[in-house]
């Protein structure tokens, strides 16, 4: 049975298809006002990858910040439940999932059976978020994939006078005009982002077996800085870090078999 998970995040929409064990199809696009059309085309793209027809998708579960916007979904679940499910399926040693997305950093802890124990989310301020990094990278004109290589050359990371993500942009522009290297500026942002995540990991009392997922996990510099700050090893899952929540939602849409063999939806998260 093919099921779909749709993760409507703060910056991107992710769609994953699964047959219950593997990620069969995955598509991702930026969030926009025509999200209905975006979701439709993403579902099609994922369906083509999975080689499945429109009627093969038996159930859709939505998750993420904008999960309630998905009209086709049977119901919506919290991101932490979805990421926990997917991460535990991919690696049985995972006890903590750190999801670094566009605006939220979520730390979820699991027990040895893969059940969600606690979740910790950052306070509601964009300082040190993915959006902050994106704004700064845009202001200095560095594409997202080049951030890590530039940061690795930085010797004197910049320290921001203002933490506010909105003010940082004008601060950066005047600093770069005054001759500051973009690598140093970005290294400063990476430090801010990683220290925010590190404090959340500490607050959650994370156990070893930490999986780093979400769009920001794709930046090696963040992973290195974060393991430097926490002194822990950050594991990488075998699938695209951004797809984990959508994959988890799709897995949960499979439901579980009850005693008489009928499939029931997995709720209760």
């Amino acid at each position: 049975m093919i099921t779909a998970g749709i993760d409507v995040g703060t910056r991107f929409i992710k769609v994953a298809l699964t047959d219950g064990e593997n990620l069969r199809g995955y598509a991702c696009a930026e969030m926009g006002p025509h999200f209905d059309a975006i979701i439709r085309s993403l579902l099609k793209e994922a369906r083509v990858q999975a080689g499945a027809g429109i009627w093969d998708i038996k159930k859709i579960i939505a998750t993420g910040f904008g999960g309630h916007l998905v009209k086709k979904a049977a119901f919506t679940l919290g991101e932490a439940a979805c990421t926990a499910k997917a991460a535990f399926l991919l690696d049985r040693d995972i006890r903590t999932v750190v999801d670094m997305g566009g605006l939220f950093i979520t730390v979820a802890t699991l027990d040895q059976n893969g059940f969600l124990e606690t979740t910790h989310v950052n306070e509601r301020c964009a300082a040190g978020s993915g959006k902050f990094l994106e704004t700064v990278a845009e202001a200095v004109g560095v594409p997202f994939e080049n951030i890590s290589s530039l940061v690795s050359f930085s010797t004197t990371p910049y320290t921001f006078t203002s933490n506010c993500a909105v003010f940082a942009e004008s601060e950066i522009i005047s600093q770069v005009n005054a001759g500051m290297k973009s690598g140093d500026v970005l290294a400063g942002v990476i430090n801010a982002v990683a220290s925010k995540a590190a404090s959340l990991i500490d607050a959650a009392g994370a156990q070893d077996g930490i999986a780093l997922i979400g769009g920001m996990a794709k930046i090696p510099a963040i992973r290195e800085k974060l393991s430097g700050l926490t002194g822990r090893k950050m594991l990488v899952l075998s699938i695209d870090a951004q797809s984990v929540a959508a994959f988890g939602a799709a897995l949960l849409a499979q439901g579980r078999k009850n005693r008489d063999g009928r499939i029931v939806a997995e709720k209760g998260f």
Partner: peptide, 18 residues
């Protein structure tokens, strides 16, 4: 409900979408 301008932006978008 949010205090941060960037989170407010997101909340406003949500209201626009609905």
């Amino acid at each position: 409900t949010n205090k941060c301008s960037i989170f407010m932006e997101l909340e406003v978008l949500n209201h626009l979408y609905t």
